[in-house]
Design a protein around this nucleic acid. Structure first.
Length: 497
RNA sequence: GGCCUCGUGGCGGAAUGGUUACGCAGCGGACUGCAAAUCCGUGUAUUCCGGUUCGAUUCCGGACGAGGCCUCCA
């Protein structure tokens, strides 16, 4: 079955038809670099990483171009820079903020297991491209110059006709509605309340570049124009997929479409617009004032990245997601099960067909995850008889079909960016280094108690044996008795969860 | 105020005009000296009120509830 994607432009699920199957082109709006990435920022990064991986699987690794920008010119950045580095000249402070934030962002997304995009342009590298688009928009009457600003006119767009789409078509609202609903302070130089800024003048000390359209003095771009310029540069006037968070539908993507289509005389900027749903934290909107702002950096201190990623994918990308500690625990349990049963492929194995089909159905990751559990049941069917139940004995007993399922499990997880072996190692290290260092008493005492308990057990002194086990339990240590390969009793322990 | 999305079991979460996946938890069992771990089995749900239909959780209308956008935001 072919790939089907939900398109915000048409509000339906459509078969995906790339413009050029030899080179699928996708653009995702990246971060404005002024603060640590939070889990809300992480959602589109992870979701579109899964899509990127799926597209690479379907069309070939070298046949997908993925562009995700870094917006490093924005008034929020200026404010942050002035606040954090008051002693520095503004432009120098801005440079520090954008470089530090971008470096942190790269660290975070790499830790989350996301592939780097094919291109990751910075807005400041593409000012010339923005000026070109602005010049064209003014020349063709879609934009005008006023008091050193350049403004885009949605009204002009709507009277253009021809191929040019209606302004508001993406967000599904009319110009009249937007005028009626405008609560914005309307700047005096705007002809209409809905006009938006393409270029604005910079004062002394603010970041500035030579202005377009004969405007004297330095200026800087408005918010939306950078994506129009960068997508054009790397992907052309019309490309396949444009993604981002649902909050970007309006005004960001609507305005990008307006700028791009009017400047290029095209009907579409991208054929498919995809938007991920919003995220809440423990049932509440995430906000700095509520103090429930969860950064990726902090989250990764507490959890293996695979747990974060899996938690994100347990909910379909278009649904709202409630980010809870409980959900993280659940993901952890599921990954433990997968780690127990996944087998490293010893030959070429594809992810299971049902798994691929679920992903191809508009990235139905919950359905895909259900398939992972089915692979687990298949894999363990051979190992259900009691006699062969020793730890480690299970995988050896798998039949060919079960082994295939166990290998498909690994491959399927890999396709959504989860390296189950890396997770297993991370989990083990976190337990053995982080937790065990912290616990009292130290390891030696635990070992000594276990030895004493096993001596009591050998003597069938159950009262003493149970007393020691309870003593350890009170310390947070869980014992696990099992039989080794030679039939000898082996007692292992772990920190109680 | 305008526009939009969503409401499925104890929890998470798919799907569907006609026995409501899957996971977690719970319960029963196997195993175990007893536990833990593991395995087997299993109960429970479509917010409410109308309408269309042979049949609605699914389609339509309304109510209630949650969330989003309209202003920086993934």
């Amino acid at each position: 079955m072919g790939l089907r994607l939900y398109n915000t432009l048409t509000r339906t699920k459509e078969p995906f038809q790339p413009i050029d199957a030899d080179q699928v082109r996708m653009y995702v709006c990246g971060p404005t670099v002024y603060d640590f990435a939070h889990i809300g920022n992480a959602r589109p990064v992870i979701v579109f990483d899964v899509l990127y991986r799926l597209l690479r699987h379907l069309y070939g690794d070298n046949h997908v171009t993925y562009v995700r920008n870094i917006t490093d010119v924005d008034d929020k950045i200026n404010e942050r820079a002035a606040r954090d580095y008051p002693a520095l000249p503004l432009n120098e402070a801005i440079g520090k903020v954008t470089h530090e934030t971008a470096a942190q962002y790269h660290k975070d997304v790499a830790a989350l297991g996301c592939l780097p995009p094919t291109h990751e342009p910075r807005a400041t590298e593409h000012i010339a491209g923005m000026r070109d688009i602005i010049e064209r928009l003014v020349a063709t009457g879609f934009a005008y110059v006023a008091e050193g600003h350049v403004l885009f006119s949605p009204a002009a767009m709507d009277s253009a006709g021809g191929m040019i789409p209606r302004y508001g078509a993406l967000a599904n609202r009319s110009l009249e509605e937007m005028i009626a609903g405008a609560r914005v302070d309307v700047a005096p130089y705007k002809r209409e309340a809905t006009d938006f800024v393409l270029w604005k003048p910079s004062t002394e000390g603010e970041p500035g570049w030579p202005s377009p359209c004969g405007i004297a003095g330095l200026g800087r771009p408005g918010w939306h124009i950078e994506c129009s310029a960068m997508s054009k540069h790397f992907l052309g006037e019309t490309f396949d997929i444009h993604g981002g968070g649902i909050d970007l539908v309006f005004p960001h993507h609507e305005n990008e479409v307006a700028q791009s289509c009017c400047a290029h005389g095209t009907a579409r900027m991208a054929n498919v617009f995809m938007h991920n749903g919003f995220l809440q934290v423990e049932g509440q909107k995430m906000s700095k004032s509520l103090g429930n702002f969860v950064t990726v950096d902090e989250l990764l201190k507490d959890w293996p990245s695979e747990v974060v990623r899996f938690s994100m994918l347990k909910t379909h990308y278009r649904q709202p997601i409630d980010w809870t500690a409980r959900a993280m625990e659940d993901s952890h349990v599921a990954l433990r099960t997968f780690a127990t049963w996944a087998k490293n492929p010893t030959r070429d194995v594809e992810p299971s067909a049902e798994f691929l089909e679920a992903l191809a159905d508009d990235l139905n990751t919950p359905r895909a995850i259900a398939e992972l559990h089915r692979l687990v049941s298949t894999a363990r069917q051979a190992a259900t008889s009691l006699a062969e139940r020793g730890p480690g004995a299970r995988l050896a007993l798998l039949t060919d079909a079960d082994t295939l399922a166990a290998m498909q499990l690994t491959r399927s997880l890999q396709l959504i960016g989860i390296d189950i072996r890396a997770y297993d190692r991370d989990w083990f290290e976190r337990r053995s280094t982080v937790n065990i260092e912290k616990i009292e008493p130290p390891k030696e005492k635990i070992e000594a108690l276990i030895t004493a308990r096993n001596a009591a057990r050998a003597a069938k002194n159950w009262a003493e044996s149970d007393r020691i086990r309870d003593e350890l339990a009170a310390m947070g240590i869980q014992l696990k008795d099992s039989k080794g390969a030679d039939g000898q009793t082996v007692t292992t322990w772990e920190v109680k969860r």
